[in-house]
Design a binder for these strands. Structure first.
Lengths: 158, 158
DNA sequence: TAAAATTAAATTGCGCGCAAATTAATTTTG
DNA sequence: CAAAATTAATTTGCGCGCAATTTAATTTTA
C-alpha cells in the first residue's frame, strides 16, 4: 500500500465517471442555457454573454467596466471587446469619465433601454423551457450561489 | 394598456435582475469550477474541457469522436482540435477505424491511463473546495441533469 | 513636486464552443 | 453498378474567457 495511493483509496472508481461529476452537470447546464437563449437573442443580434451584460445594466445603468466585471465575475480582457460590440450594435455607449480618465462609463442607449421590454418575453420563454417551478428555480439558484461562493473563496486560500 | 406589454405585465421588474437569473447562477458556477480546476490541471498541462474528455475515456476507452461528442454534448468542431491537443500532449491516440475510414477512434495512451490515479486526488480537492456534502452534490447534480434535459428537449420543439 | 507605485482599460495570444462549409468514406437508390 | 444521399471528421470564422502585457491616468511617497 503506497502512501500516495492509500490516501484516496476510499474513493470508488464510479466516483470518477462524467455523469457523477457536479462540475460536468454545471458545464452541461451552462451549454444548454446558451443553446436555448441563442435563437431568442439572434433576432436582436445579441450573444448570451452580451445579454447578461444588458441585464446588469437594466438593473444599474452607468457602470464602469470594472464595476460590470465585479457584478459578473469577468475581467476587462473579456469585457472590453464585448462592450465594443454592444456599442457597435447600438445598445450601449462608452464614455471616459471626465473626473477620472482611466475609467470608462458604460451607459444604455435608448435602443438598449427599449430592449428591456422585450426581455420579459425572453424571460418567460426561458422559464417555460426550463420546466421549473418558481420554487425549484429559487432553490437551485441559491444552491449554485452558495457553491460559487465556496469555490471562489477556496481560490484565495491557495 | 398595450397588448404587447400586457402579456407579461405580471412579471415584476426584480425578476429581470442578474442575481435572480438561474442561467446566471449556472454561468457563474461554471466559471468558478473552471477557475478551481485550473491550478490543479496546470501541472498536467491540461485544460478543464480536456480533463472532462479524459474522464469520459477513463469510463469508456476507445470511443469515436462522435461518441465522445454524444457523451459530452459537444460537436466535432469543438472536439477535433481539442483531441489533437490531447494527442500532442501524449494522453490519447487517434486512429482511423480500419472498418470505417470515416471514423476516428480515440484511445488512452499509457500516460493517459496513468493519469487516472492522479484524478482521485483532483476529485478530492474539488470536493473540498465545493464544501458540499455528498448528498448536496447528488441533489444538485440531479436537479441540473433534469434542467439540462428539459432545456435540451425544448430545443427540438422550436 | 518629481519619481515610484497603483489603478483602469485595452490589447495580445490561446483554447474552447458552435455554425457553416469542406473533404472523404459509406450507404442508399434508381 | 453508378449516381445521389448520408455520414464522420476536419476546417474556417467568430465570440467569449482568461492570463499576461501594455498604455495611460491617478495616487502615493520621498
Amino acid at each position: 500500500m503506497t502512501s500516495k495511493a492509500a490516501k484516496f483509496e476510499a474513493i470508488p472508481d464510479e466516483a470518477l465517471t462524467l455523469g457523477q461529476q457536479l462540475c460536468f452537470a454545471v458545464y452541461s447546464a451552462g451549454h444548454a442555457f446558451n443553446r436555448t437563449y441563442k435563437p431568442l437573442l439572434d433576432r436582436f443580434g445579441l450573444t448570451y454573454p452580451q445579454y447578461l451584460v444588458l441585464l446588469a445594466l437594466w438593473q444599474q445603468d452607468r457602470m464602469t467596466v470594472k464595476r460590470i466585471g465585479e457584478e459578473m465575475g469577468l475581467d476587462s480582457g473579456t469585457l472590453s471587446p464585448l462592450l465594443k460590440r454592444l456599442e457597435a450594435a447600438g445598445y450601449v455607449s462608452r464614455l471616459r469619465d471626465p473626473g477620472d480618465e482611466r475609467q470608462v462609463i458604460v451607459s444604455l442607449t435608448e435602443k438598449g433601454r427599449r430592449l428591456k421590454a422585450e426581455a420579459f418575453g425572453i424571460l418567460a420563454e426561458i422559464g417555460k423551457a426550463s420546466g421549473c417551478t418558481l420554487e425549484e428555480i429559487r432553490d437551485l439558484r441559491e444552491a449554485l450561489h452558495r457553491l460559487t461562493q465556496r469555490l471562489g473563496s477556496s481560490q484565495q486560500e491557495s
